[in-house]
Design a protein around this nucleic acid. Structure first.
Lengths: 187, 187
DNA sequence: GTCTATACCTGGATAGAC
DNA sequence: GTCTATCCAGGTATAGAC
């Protein structure tokens, strides 16, 4: 197993902490504690905290693209592919309950902060949005494929938010069933 | 028109700012600027920032209860009452686009911060949840009324989140139509 | 009840030794 | 490449005059 560089370790740790505690609420001390480096050392790798955020977003974008490629290679049928999307609610249930949706909570926070990285972060949504739109287009649906993509995106978003606030896994499971049924009945 | 006390002015201003900028990101200076008092003066009215937050939550809870009472007096039919709930997406469209849902964004932030006021804030959701459950019960639906309440709550939550992130009012309008149709078809 | 002054702390950022 | 020391800004909170 290849050893991670300090740069990668920082990005990895920041990624987790931004997700678990929020961006603003995560300090250099928090990250330093995880990576086990001194605070001053950050500035050898990054110019500012915002640059760490940028690296984290880039890291997540890369991971997301990889995930979508995997779903595409695993399933030929667009409907099955969309089902893969729904299944992340199931796969990440424990984390969603604890910390909410990593995309939604980050984008919402940055939007409230009027943060310059806002548009970059929104790409995290847009990658899914575009990909879902493609799948719906291949299903030859009468409705606007982009509207369907937004619909399922916001549906999962609402589920994650409520599951997070109420710390309720059962609710996630209930809604997953409904989203799947909605998908099957699409014509 | 009765003049507001300083206490009320602080709560009112904090309420707005917490919504627009987030709780953590709002400083005493920000509030002081709006109310036009000095920073030191806060501590005559509140022991800490958390106490301001508590007052804001209480303020919102009172307003919410009043709103529900109003909906009840305006509509006898439970279905029409639920429609009133859906309509807040329409009425507050501009603000939702700009700042998201006031309940959802606050609760999500406090949950991430592991803030002690977390459970109090969740009451803001629970008031709606309980009230919606009552309405669905009166509609004599075969499904669990609480599940339906959670469903519509999370639906509106997802819509608010995506509309906020994408600054998209058209999407809100599209989804409102769908929620209304869902409500009408409930059996 | 409101103000000014100030204490105290934390967090981001810099300089420079090793 | 990593450390320590340090600076500076800002945020919460306190003391005490008016």
């Amino acid at each position: 197993m290849k050893r991670q560089t300090t740069f990668e370790q920082i990005v990895e740790a920041a990624d987790q902490l931004f997700y678990q505690q929020g961006f603003e609420n995560t300090s250099f001390s928090d990250i330093a504690e995880v990576v086990k480096i001194s605070r001053g050392n950050f500035y050898h790798h990054f110019k500012s905290k915002n640059e760490i955020l940028n690296a984290v977003i880039k890291h997540r974008l890369d991971n997301t693209r990889e995930l979508l490629n995997q779903w595409e290679s695993e399933n030929q049928n667009p409907q099955d592919r969309v089902q893969s999307f729904i299944n992340i609610l199931l796969m990440n249930m424990a984390k969603i309950k604890k910390y909410g949706c990593p995309v939604g909570t980050l984008c919402t926070e940055l939007t409230k902060l009027q943060h310059p990285a806002q548009t970059d972060a929104n790409q995290l949504f847009s990658i899914f949005r575009g990909w879902l739109t493609q799948q719906f287009e291949r299903m030859h649906l009468s409705q606007n494929a982009d509207d369907l993509a937004m619909h399922i995106l916001s549906w999962s978003q609402g589920v994650a938010t409520l599951a997070h606030v109420y710390q309720d896994e059962r609710f996630i499971q209930l809604e997953i069933t409904q989203i799947s049924n909605w998908l099957k009945q699409l014509k």
